[in-house]
């Protein structure tokens, strides 16, 4: 299913990207995907940490309420957007490799 809801402009291509001798193209992509995943995880944890600290400081949110929450309506749509941009980021090497293959 195309992600029309959140399509963004693509960055310009990078010229002169060399293969790393002996590193397969797919290994190269996998390394980059793992690093991007770790980045996403770090960002998410920082955000959760911000929220938990603020909520705790304000004394406003019992943990059980978080556990019971389910996203609906606009909240569900916004979460879909977050998931789509996460996918676009983590799996960027696949797109880049395809673009390079097409250019070559």
């Amino acid at each position: 299913m195309p992600m029309e809801c959140c399509r963004v402009n693509l960055p310009p291509p990078t010229a002169g990207r060399r293969e790393i001798t002996g590193l397969s193209v797919i290994e190269d992509q996998a390394l980059s995907m793992i690093a991007a995943l770790a980045s996403e995880l770090a960002v998410a944890r920082e955000r959760i940490d911000t929220l938990e600290r603020l909520l705790d400081a304000n004394g406003t949110l019992p943990r059980a309420q978080v556990e019971a929450y389910r996203a609906e309506g606009e909240a569900a749509q916004q979460r879909e957007g977050l998931r789509h941009s996460l996918i676009a980021k983590v799996f960027r090497p696949l797109r880049d490799a395809s673009r390079r293959a097409l250019e070559g």
């Binding site: 590193l23 190269d28 980059s32």
Partner: peptide, 27 residues
């Protein structure tokens, strides 16, 4: 060094970190 997998994975991650940096900043 290129025959050594440990070097290849370091080099690959070295470049991946640079590519991700640009991708983050571009967005």
């Amino acid at each position: 060094l290129h025959e050594e997998p440990a070097f290849r994975s370091w080099a690959g991650m070295f470049r991946a970190s640079q590519e991700i940096m640009w991708d983050d900043i571009w967005r």
